[in-house]
């Protein structure tokens, strides 16, 4: 499905800092419906901080964030919980609950978000989500028994099991080998097609960005440095873009 120009997330002049260190200095961006927006930037440029502000895991110092027309900063606890039900968040570390099996990990948000489901329906949804990420045989395994890539997939299954409308991916391919990274990138596209989600993908993995982006944003010094299509970024003569997109020169030993 083609992205539409109807924004589902609107971020305006977002500022946040930690102590005396400013991280985002007036960031403005939109995420359109059914769009995969890739946010690139060096480590420490505030990419993860941005999506944590969107789900209000962090409170911004100033600026506004509207998600599906509702101002995130002004929601009370119950409205915020309702809003968060519509958003899937894939954490950098996977963040699977390590005292629970994979099945319990997936059942945890389901039982809390979709309270009217019977246990049979919950089982069906869990099986479907695990099948979608190719992990049908891991139901009773503990997270510690899975590889890094499998943990990421299981975590992805946990986010899609509640049918979110918006997906926020925090460095989905970090720490994975190139083959598994490609598989995760393909999964992101499959999820977008199957569930019609709008996604923000935070990454500094260029291959993941190439595979998933409808539109791209580069962050620098807490602001949007460049915005455009993959082609715009690849053909840019800007030094920062080149350092990301041009083939790396091999260092001599």
């Amino acid at each position: 499905m083609e992205p539409s120009s109807q924004p589902v997330i609107v971020v305006r002049d977002l500022k946040i800092g930690f102590g005396k260190l400013p991280v985002l200095k007036g960031l403005t961006l939109n995420l359109n419906t059914k769009e995969n927006l890739v946010v690139l930037g060096k480590s420490g440029s505030g990419k993860s901080v941005l999506i944590k502000c969107i789900v209000r895991l962090l409170r911004s110092d100033s600026g506004t964030i509207d998600v599906m027309g509702e101002r995130i900063g002004e929601l009370n606890a119950s409205d915020l919980a309702a809003m968060r039900m519509k958003i899937g968040f894939l954490f950098q570390s996977g963040a699977l609950y390590d005292s629970m099996t994979i099945k319990e990990n997936l059942a945890f948000p389901l039982k809390r978000i979709k309270r009217n489901l019977s246990s049979k329906q919950i089982d069906e949804k869990i099986n479907e989500a695990l099948e979608n990420v190719g992990l049908s045989d891991t139901l009773d395994k503990m997270p510690s028994q899975l590889s890094g890539g499998m943990r990421k997939r299981a975590s992805l299954a946990r986010t899609i099991v509640v049918d979110p409308q918006i997906m926020l991916y925090d460095e989905p391919t970090t720490g994975l080998d190139p083959v598994t990274s490609d598989e995760i990138s393909a999964l992101i596209n499959q999820i977008q097609e199957k569930y019609n989600t709008s996604s923000i993908i935070i990454t500094h993995d260029i291959e993941c960005a190439r595979a998933t982006a409808d539109r791209m944003i580069m962050l620098k010094d807490g602001k949007v440095y460049m915005e455009g299509s993959l082609e715009d970024f690849e053909t840019s003569s800007d030094e920062l873009m080149q350092s990301f997109f041009k083939p790396k020169i091999k260092h001599q030993r």
Partner: peptide, 16 residues
């Protein structure tokens, strides 16, 4: 360790 591995954050974003 749940805090360090973002499990508490994950719980919060799943409306718990």
């Amino acid at each position: 360790s749940m805090k360090v591995t973002e499990q508490i954050d994950a719980m919060e974003v799943s409306s718990t």
